[in-house]
Deep mutational scan, measured.
Amino acid sequence: TLKVHYKYTVVMKTQPGLPYSQVRDMVSKKLELRLEHTKLSYRPRDSNELVPLSEDSMKDAWGQVKNYCLTLWCE
């Protein structure tokens, strides 16, 4: 499951381990945003700071799954 905080919160079913490009595509379609305006980030467990997502950091983000849910933020 993927939970995304935006102006409102959406929850989507997804497969764990998807690459950033696929996750961003899913989120942009769900929120009806243009792909270039979809910026995603996540919060590591040991931090209060949001970390921007990229293809490289997506593996780390999937490591933050809690209760089968990855929580992301969209700007």
Score class of each variant (00 low, 15 high):
residue 52 P to E: 15
residue 26 M to P: 06
residue 57 S to M: 08
residue 4 V to M: 04
residue 15 Q to L: 10
residue 28 S to P: 04
residue 25 D to M: 14
residue 26 M to I: 09
residue 46 D to C: 10
residue 26 M to T: 05
residue 3 K to T: 10
residue 58 M to S: 00
residue 5 H to N: 07
residue 32 E to K: 15
residue 62 W to T: 04
residue 13 K to P: 15
residue 25 D to K: 12
residue 32 E to S: 13
residue 67 N to A: 05
residue 71 T to A: 01
residue 48 N to H: 10
residue 27 V to D: 05
residue 35 L to P: 15
residue 26 M to R: 06
residue 29 K to M: 10
residue 4 V to I: 14
residue 33 L to F: 01
residue 49 E to Q: 12
residue 13 K to L: 04
residue 50 L to A: 08
residue 50 L to S: 01
residue 42 Y to I: 09
residue 52 P to H: 06
residue 52 P to T: 11
residue 19 P to F: 10
residue 53 L to G: 02
residue 2 L to F: 02
residue 50 L to C: 07
residue 58 M to Q: 07
residue 21 S to I: 06
residue 51 V to L: 11
residue 29 K to S: 10
residue 25 D to H: 11
residue 58 M to A: 06
residue 72 L to S: 08
residue 31 L to R: 01
residue 34 R to T: 13
residue 67 N to S: 09
residue 9 T to Q: 04
residue 57 S to P: 06
residue 44 P to Y: 02
residue 22 Q to E: 14
residue 67 N to W: 02
residue 40 L to Y: 06
residue 30 K to H: 08
residue 51 V to R: 10
residue 23 V to N: 01
residue 58 M to C: 00
residue 56 D to T: 11
residue 3 K to W: 07
residue 52 P to W: 01
residue 62 W to R: 05
residue 52 P to C: 13
residue 15 Q to W: 11
residue 29 K to L: 06
residue 66 K to M: 01
residue 59 K to H: 14
residue 42 Y to C: 07
residue 23 V to I: 14
residue 8 Y to D: 13
residue 63 G to C: 12
residue 46 D to G: 15
residue 47 S to F: 05
residue 22 Q to P: 11
residue 51 V to G: 04
residue 44 P to M: 07
residue 36 E to R: 03
residue 43 R to A: 11
residue 63 G to L: 12
residue 32 E to M: 12
residue 46 D to Q: 09
residue 62 W to F: 02
residue 43 R to L: 14
residue 11 V to L: 12
residue 9 T to G: 00
residue 42 Y to Q: 05
residue 27 V to H: 03
residue 36 E to Y: 05
residue 69 C to M: 06
residue 61 A to T: 06
residue 36 E to D: 10
residue 40 L to I: 04
residue 74 C to W: 01
residue 68 Y to L: 13
residue 38 T to A: 06
residue 16 P to H: 11
residue 3 K to P: 00
residue 64 Q to V: 04
residue 20 Y to E: 01
residue 39 K to M: 11
residue 48 N to V: 12
residue 65 V to A: 15
residue 54 S to I: 00
residue 2 L to C: 00
residue 23 V to E: 02
residue 36 E to K: 05
residue 50 L to M: 07
residue 62 W to P: 01
residue 47 S to D: 07
residue 73 W to P: 09
residue 66 K to R: 14
residue 61 A to Y: 01
residue 31 L to A: 01
residue 40 L to P: 00
residue 66 K to W: 05
residue 46 D to K: 03
residue 58 M to D: 01
residue 42 Y to G: 08
residue 30 K to Y: 00
residue 8 Y to M: 08
residue 52 P to L: 09
residue 36 E to M: 02
residue 10 V to F: 11
residue 40 L to K: 05
residue 45 R to H: 14
residue 62 W to S: 03
residue 60 D to R: 04
residue 18 L to E: 01
residue 74 C to D: 04
residue 11 V to M: 08
residue 17 G to A: 05
residue 17 G to P: 05
residue 30 K to P: 03
residue 71 T to V: 10
residue 20 Y to D: 07
residue 14 T to W: 02
residue 36 E to I: 04
residue 17 G to W: 09
residue 51 V to T: 07
residue 22 Q to C: 08
residue 23 V to H: 01
residue 31 L to M: 06
residue 45 R to I: 13
residue 42 Y to S: 01
residue 64 Q to G: 13
residue 45 R to S: 13
residue 33 L to C: 10
residue 52 P to Q: 14
residue 9 T to F: 02
residue 16 P to R: 10
residue 28 S to Y: 04
residue 36 E to N: 02
residue 8 Y to W: 10
residue 20 Y to T: 00
residue 13 K to V: 06
residue 31 L to D: 07
residue 65 V to T: 14
residue 51 V to E: 09
residue 48 N to I: 10
residue 49 E to D: 12
residue 51 V to I: 12
residue 73 W to A: 06
residue 29 K to F: 06
residue 11 V to K: 09
residue 60 D to E: 12
residue 56 D to E: 15
residue 34 R to M: 10
residue 54 S to N: 15
residue 45 R to G: 12
residue 50 L to Q: 03
residue 14 T to V: 15
residue 23 V to D: 09
residue 38 T to L: 13
residue 36 E to H: 04
residue 53 L to R: 07
residue 13 K to S: 12
residue 63 G to H: 15
residue 15 Q to D: 13
residue 26 M to F: 06
residue 19 P to Q: 04
residue 52 P to A: 12
residue 25 D to G: 09
residue 66 K to T: 12
residue 53 L to C: 02
residue 28 S to A: 15
residue 54 S to V: 03
residue 61 A to I: 10
residue 51 V to A: 05
residue 32 E to L: 07
residue 20 Y to L: 05
residue 49 E to P: 00
residue 25 D to C: 07
residue 17 G to M: 04
residue 73 W to D: 02
residue 68 Y to P: 08
residue 68 Y to D: 15
residue 62 W to N: 01
residue 19 P to V: 00
residue 69 C to D: 05
residue 10 V to Y: 08
residue 14 T to G: 03
residue 19 P to T: 14
residue 41 S to L: 14
residue 65 V to I: 09
residue 49 E to T: 12
residue 59 K to F: 15
residue 60 D to C: 08
residue 8 Y to P: 00
residue 52 P to K: 06
residue 2 L to M: 07
residue 32 E to G: 15
residue 34 R to P: 15
residue 73 W to L: 00
residue 58 M to G: 02
residue 52 P to D: 06
residue 3 K to F: 05
residue 27 V to Q: 09
residue 19 P to K: 08
residue 22 Q to K: 14
residue 36 E to V: 00
residue 44 P to Q: 11
residue 16 P to N: 08
residue 46 D to H: 14
residue 23 V to S: 04
residue 21 S to W: 13
residue 28 S to D: 09
residue 38 T to I: 14
residue 48 N to R: 11
residue 13 K to M: 08
residue 8 Y to V: 05
residue 41 S to R: 09
residue 71 T to K: 04
residue 74 C to R: 05
residue 71 T to L: 03
residue 45 R to C: 14
residue 31 L to N: 08
residue 4 V to S: 01
residue 18 L to A: 14
residue 59 K to E: 15
residue 10 V to M: 10
residue 71 T to W: 02
residue 30 K to W: 01
residue 43 R to S: 03
